[in-house]
Lab assay of single mutants.
Amino acid sequence: MASQGTKRSYEQMETDGERQNATEIRASVGKMIDGIGRFYIQMCTELKLSDYEGRLIQNSLTIERMVLSAFDERRNKYLEEHPSAGKDPKKTGGPIYKRVDRKWMRELVLYDKEEIRRIWRQANNGDDATAGLTHMMIWHSNLNDTTYQRTRALVRTGMDPRMCSLMQGSTLPRRSGAAGAAVKGVGTMVMELIRMIKRGINDRNFWRGENGRKTRSAYERMCNILKGKFQTAAQRAMMDQVRESRNPGNAEIEDLIFLARSALILRGSVAHKSCLPACVYGPAVASGYDFEKEGYSLVGIDPFKLLQNSQVYSLIRPNENPAHKSQLVWMACNSAAFEDLRVLSFIRGTKVSPRGKLSTRGVQIASNENMDAMESSTLELRSRYWAIRTRSGGNTNQQRASAGQISVQPAFSVQRNLPFDKPTIMAAFTGNTEGRTSDMRAEIIRMMEGAKPEEMSFQGRGVFELSDERAANPIVPSFDMSNEGSYFFGDNAEEYDN
């Protein structure tokens, strides 16, 4: 993207840094990872977990959730003011799984939030270390993106479920800051804005008074975040219109849905970061690795190297396929839920299948599930090659597409044709070009129609051997075009429920 120079890199967003050079960025990201790792080690000690239990991804998720809940100030305040039966607002906890007599047992633990905050700050040299908290939120978000298709949420806001490739980060909490905003897809931002506008339509006082002023500035800020994701002048001009509207209503909703559809071809720039579970960072720190000293990046080879040398386990339900569970977590670790499966298959070195073909449910185990038949197995999170994460949407291309997802959002900077089903997408653009945004709409449609099938995206960008740390010898991959490109292809993934 041309304006790259004016933006802070995501590592800076990730670490609240002012302008830093590459070495400083690597050190501050490393410091953040160190903090998460030290916190995780301490929690495993508190909970008396064995090494194996500490490497269980379900335990990692519970521990991450506990610290996120302990620092969720708004919710904590709300819980104190609106006490609900049987919930102690000062405590947080969740299921911890232990191996007892050759069987997995679930144990519900409860801790004072104050105590968890103390352990977290102690692991982070006394700081609140917001960057580390956001990092864990993005890992949870990436896992949700890989596990669930947001059909219901899309339909509720009037969008087409086939636009799911635009929904990265749709389950990120509001408090995820600049680093969170960077990884949100165009569809996620559109959905947040539509929800806001709908509230304004239904509630006369939404934009009024002292609160209304705050609401208005939040609305304009979200519009600017979305505008910054678009790469064409016409899309940005249309966002200006939406932002400046005196009284946002149905016309703005129409414009936003139009823009979301246009992003299936004229893709937005959305950041991709490899955020790993805390149970990967903990053992690495415990083994003596100093992330701050060595430096770390979320968008280069580092996460690949770390996963190459990590042992992570997962509980497996009786009829689940461990290899499929591994694929789910591998995609989440690489922030690749909406990437082209052919690119992923090449990088991973084994075939990556669409969601609907995987015999696996989510990673988390519900409290009512029976533990008797639970097994555990090693997650295979290694890769054959590594590639640089991208934040450009890439230019655009036609490809055989599917009944489910009709476009992709690249996660890796790797040369390819970008699949999208042009006739299906263009069919949504018939007729409606009147109104105050008509010239911009016409211009956007013209650009979409001009998108050429034979153009290559990320020209000359390749993948790298894991021994090639400096990215000196790019390998331009070859793809098996007979395979499906979309992950949520004609899909039956479970729906995400809060």
Results as ranks from 00 to 15, higher is better:
Gly394Ser: 00
Ile138Asp: 05
Gly356Arg: 13
Gly431Met: 13
Gly37Thr: 04
Lys452Phe: 14
Arg75Thr: 10
Pro354His: 07
Ala442Ser: 15
Leu226Glu: 11
Asn334Phe: 03
Glu449Arg: 06
Cys164Glu: 00
Lys184Asn: 06
Thr390Leu: 01
Ser297Lys: 09
Phe39Ala: 15
Ser353Pro: 15
Asn247Ile: 08
Cys275Asn: 12
Thr146Gln: 05
Asp127Lys: 10
Glu320Arg: 07
Pro303Glu: 05
Met331Pro: 06
Arg117Val: 13
Lys305Tyr: 09
Arg470Ser: 13
Val285Asp: 07
Ala451Asn: 14
Tyr313Asp: 04
Glu380Pro: 02
Gln415Asp: 00
Phe39Lys: 05
Pro248Tyr: 02
Ile316Ala: 04
Glu64Lys: 07
Ala22Ile: 01
Ile201Cys: 12
Val190Glu: 03
Ile36Arg: 06
Ser467Glu: 08
Glu73Ser: 12
Gly180His: 07
Cys223Glu: 11
Ser9Gln: 11
Phe304Tyr: 08
Thr433Tyr: 12
Ala284Trp: 13
Glu380Gln: 15
Ile25Arg: 13
Ile406Asp: 04
Thr146Ser: 15
Tyr496Phe: 15
Met196Leu: 10
Phe479Arg: 11
Lys48Pro: 06
Arg195Ser: 07
Gly460Ala: 15
Arg174Leu: 08
Leu315Gly: 03
Ile316Arg: 04
Glu115Lys: 09
Asp302Tyr: 06
Gly249Arg: 10
Glu455Phe: 04
Glu449Phe: 02
Val329Glu: 04
Asp128Tyr: 11
Ala181Thr: 02
Asp255Ser: 07
Ser486Asn: 07
Ile225Arg: 02
Asn395Ile: 01
Met448Leu: 15
Leu344Asn: 10
Lys48Cys: 07
Ile116Val: 15
Glu375Ala: 02
Glu64Ala: 03
Phe304Pro: 05
Ser50Cys: 14
Lys229Gly: 08
Asp203Met: 06
Glu339Met: 07
Met371Asp: 01
Ala403Phe: 01
Ser84Tyr: 01
Ile406Pro: 02
Ser84Val: 04
Gly460Val: 00
Gln122Leu: 13
Tyr219Gly: 01
Gly212Arg: 06
Ser9Leu: 15
Glu465Gly: 12
Tyr97Gln: 10
Val285Asn: 09
Ser353Asn: 14
Asn334Gly: 08
Asp255Tyr: 13
Glu53Ala: 14
Arg246Leu: 03
Asn483Cys: 00
Phe420Trp: 00
Asn473Ala: 02
Cys44Glu: 11
Phe464Arg: 00
Gly169Leu: 06
Asp290Gln: 09
Met447Val: 12
Ile96Tyr: 11
Glu107Arg: 04
Asp439Arg: 07
Ile365Thr: 11
Ile365Phe: 12
Gln231Gly: 13
Asp145Tyr: 09
Arg38Thr: 12
Arg8Ala: 00
Met222Pro: 00
Met374Thr: 12
Thr15Val: 08
Asn473Asp: 04
Arg75Val: 04
Ser478Met: 03
Met447Trp: 05
Ser217Gln: 14
Met238Tyr: 00
Ser478Gln: 15
Glu107Trp: 05
Ala2Asn: 00
Val408Lys: 03
Gly435Thr: 10
Lys77Met: 13
Thr424Asn: 13
Val352Gln: 13
Pro477Thr: 08
Ser176Gly: 14
Ile425Met: 06
Glu320Pro: 03
Asp290Ala: 07
Ala472Phe: 10
Tyr385His: 08
Arg8Ser: 00
Ile201Val: 15
